[in-house]
């Protein structure tokens, strides 16, 4: 806590923070929200839900052929099978990267995102330049993330909606054949599941 040089009052937060606080207290008084439920939501997204959940899904798909088939056929059901369900995970489509096809996920309207498996979206995903350029110049966007694709690779861009969320199943890196799911999970980055990066073999840093 920084020392502000005064003891008899507390600096109020910004106007917008005060308005959100006002909403919360008015809604609580009307019985429309429960502060404990709000805390639980914040806590869930802070600590329990994040890209490590998506990484478990991907690592299992790499090591369990039956699961991989179920995942690509009905993403929602296969992901729910692993216990990852939530607000926006109800209609999940998993799109598979192959040597010929690279998938990239965006939400051009706002920032629809597969929260139950990836947590909250990063700032760049929410930015207008990403939202428009992922569609108009996907290869340029990929280059900026250090991802170069051969000219013959087809780039497919998936525009998320409030009803449909996409998760990229990246390609398993060379040299990791026979690895356990547990050993693969740390290699699988959030960005690789959005489709802006590839999964690199162990020991490679970006």
């Amino acid at each position: 806590m920084p020392h502000d040089g005064h003891d008899d009052f507390t600096d109020p937060p910004s106007d917008i923070a005060l308005r959100v606080k006002a909403l919360e207290s008015l809604l609580t008084e009307k019985g429309l929200v429960d502060p404990a439920a709000l805390d639980a939501i914040i806590d869930t997204y802070e600590t329990r839900v994040g890209p490590h959940c998506g990484a478990k899904v991907v690592a299992r798909a790499w090591t369990d052929a039956d699961f991989r088939l179920r995942l690509l056929e009905d993403g929602s059901a296969a992901i729910a099978e692993m216990g990852f369900v939530g607000r926006q995970g109800e209609h999940m489509v998993v799109v598979e990267n192959t040597p010929d096809v690279h998938n990239l996920v965006v939400c051009t309207l706002c920032s629809c995102y597969p929260w139950p498996v990836l947590g909250l979206p990063p700032v760049w995903y929410k930015s207008a330049p990403y939202r428009s350029r992922a569609v108009s110049d996907p290869r340029g966007v990929l280059e900026e993330f250090g991802t170069t694709l051969d000219a013959n690779v087809e780039v497919r861009v998936w525009d998320s909606t409030s009803e449909m969320r996409y998760l990229v199943l990246p390609m398993q890196p060379e040299g990791t054949e026979g690895f356990s799911a547990r050993k693969l999970e740390p290699l699988i980055s959030r960005n690789s599941m959005i489709g802006v990066e590839k999964v690199l073999p162990p020991g490679n840093t970006r």
């Binding site: 937060p13 910004s14 917008i16 923070a17 959100v20 606080k21 909403l23 919360e24 809604l27 929200v33 429960d34 439920a37 709000l38 805390d39 939501i41 914040i42 997204y45 802070e46 607000r87 909250l120």
Partner: peptide
Amino acid sequence: WEAQAFALSVE
């Protein structure tokens, strides 16, 4: 406050 606004929408 961003997290609070987020949680309000979800709830």
